[in-house]
Design a protein around this nucleic acid. Sequence first.
DNA 1: CATGAATGAGAATTCATTCAT
DNA 2: GATGAATGAATTCTCATTCAT
Lengths: 192, 192, 192, 192
Amino acid sequence: MSKDKIIRAAIEVFSENGYHRASMDEIAQRAQVAKGTLYYNFPSKSQLFKTIVKAGYEDIIRRTEADLNAPLPMEEMILQVIRHHLDFFLESQHIAHIVFNEISNGIEKDVLDELNQIRREHLNYLARILKEGKCERQLLRDLDPNLSAASMIGTLESTFNYYLNHQEEYSREDLEHFVFTFITQGLYISFD
Amino acid sequence: MSKDKIIRAAIEVFSENGYHRASMDEIAQRAQVAKGTLYYNFPSKSQLFKTIVKAGYEDIIRRTEADLNAPLPMEEMILQVIRHHLDFFLESQHIAHIVFNEISNGIEKDVLDELNQIRREHLNYLARILKEGKCERQLLRDLDPNLSAASMIGTLESTFNYYLNHQEEYSREDLEHFVFTFITQGLYISFD
Amino acid sequence: MSKDKIIRAAIEVFSENGYHRASMDEIAQRAQVAKGTLYYNFPSKSQLFKTIVKAGYEDIIRRTEADLNAPLPMEEMILQVIRHHLDFFLESQHIAHIVFNEISNGIEKDVLDELNQIRREHLNYLARILKEGKCERQLLRDLDPNLSAASMIGTLESTFNYYLNHQEEYSREDLEHFVFTFITQGLYISFD
Amino acid sequence: MSKDKIIRAAIEVFSENGYHRASMDEIAQRAQVAKGTLYYNFPSKSQLFKTIVKAGYEDIIRRTEADLNAPLPMEEMILQVIRHHLDFFLESQHIAHIVFNEISNGIEKDVLDELNQIRREHLNYLARILKEGKCERQLLRDLDPNLSAASMIGTLESTFNYYLNHQEEYSREDLEHFVFTFITQGLYISFD
DNA sequence: CATGAATGAGAATTCATTCAT
DNA sequence: GATGAATGAATTCTCATTCAT
């Protein structure tokens, strides 16, 4: 079906070139449909982009939620969150790159607002997990949950970006272990 | 002098619109020079962009180095690094936004290579600090210094981005304290 | 029935947007039929347009003729012509706007020819009435009947257009009286 | 100079094809400039169109005013107005066609508003002449000056349009005489 | 009778860059 | 040093029309 072909092609083209350099022409070509078909299925370039980003966030949340609705100890939950985000980064580099790196200044205001709304919801989702963890047990430090969620994402993102340029030097386990340790324990050896 | 006016204008326009939506026309207008003058001073848009990014990185390294060449305890060094980066983010939001958020896919390959080279050097600089810290004293965990450096930046960046949209809820001290705690100790209360 | 729904919708859309900006998409939407149905009922956009214009002219001639086939004095005939045209303008603003204002340059040549043919016939019809009037009685000045017919239409049209933008300032009677006086007696107080 | 070449070409293309079918490509080609040059000189198609229409109206008013600022008897004034409008129609068929026939529904609202404003001013100018005439001397009938002005234009326009398709049948004097008689005395032989 | 997905030729507009002055 | 008119390739988007079902 055209819509699917277009989305698959768009993911490729957007992630290879970024939003602004991606051209509808190339997306159409790769999807093997006529340019008009793009606009038959999506009202504009920015809406097509938004559709992809939204699906990306929804996918990652769905994966994470599938694991977390069974009650888990907090350590396990954070590990699962990290794992699912890393999985997503690794399996869907293209989408991930768009979802997390493409700031897209200079996109239509209304679409940008929607994108930011989606981003915010994703952060809130993570922050909520951390908030519960803080109450429930005495595991988590008294840090602002929103900033903590943002920093988790930032850490995952920059770790993954670094990995992209140095794939041969690290294994998947290395990344997972690094991110988990960095996020939960930080750089310092704990003072005891 | 024209060159300065252009750079000042370019920083504004790039950070407001992102690289691709920033137009040489608007930069010329804001700099109050003719468009030709832009090309008299800079060979191309991407070179103008690179000039700004490079200066941004150099500025931040210069500030940090000024403090660190006197021998300091590691705790203090990391705090200084965080402080100088936060200072830079807060004082030069525009440049910082460009320097850290503008991935600039779809820029000429040679300029992109130079930009990545600059980014890499900045990371190396931070990684070197951490490496020394690991040997010197027993403070730092045995984590990969490159990934650690990348994650420090990622944390600073995402914290700052979150702050930009919630300025009223946090003070500068809040940010500094959060980032320092997150980076050095992580989310968990240390097991002792 | 689809055909009627389409015509009703097309009249609206053509008169709101003019021929070139009217889109088959919008006509289909307003008619609540699929786009294919438009082409099932009308071979092309221009043919649909022509159908409407033709029906408009036929309607106005039918109305006028209904009154004029009974023998009437010339004064009365001209008054009836004016009345019926004004009625038509007032009752079917949409169609009238299309019929008289949409010059439609840049329509397919064959359809344009047909449209002009229809227009010509309408003018001829009016000119014939005037010609008879000139012979029959000594009421009408020796003016070219074709130019006279064209000028009658022009007067009705421009009066009506002015009225459209100043509806509150004139009543229907004002218009009728003005047009009748202007056409039959002109601006000057007759020299006697 | 480019601007002049563009305007000359645009007048041709607009009047041959109407606003919507006229393409910037063709205008550029005929003006022998690159497409970009069009946009260097005019911000948009609609603004280019407006520029031409405005100049047309200004030209016609300038011509008329040149004659009328010397005090003239009303008969003479109306004759001059008719003559100058006919001159304009005959000398600048292209512009006249645009100015008076191109209703341009479906143009950007702001430009359309400006166009209507220009049209209105032209009508007001003619209405003012008639108003003065009514007071000054006992020549003019007590007809609404605005509707009268609109009808004068409508008469000139439709007469001219008819003439365009039947050029061989009428001389310039025929037209002038017809329009003057129709406008000032109407169709009826005055009752005396 | 009716549908609606798909098309592709055009159209307006943008913008980095050049170059004669 | 500086200008700004001119360029033309690239880009997004529109829309009448077709056709398999």
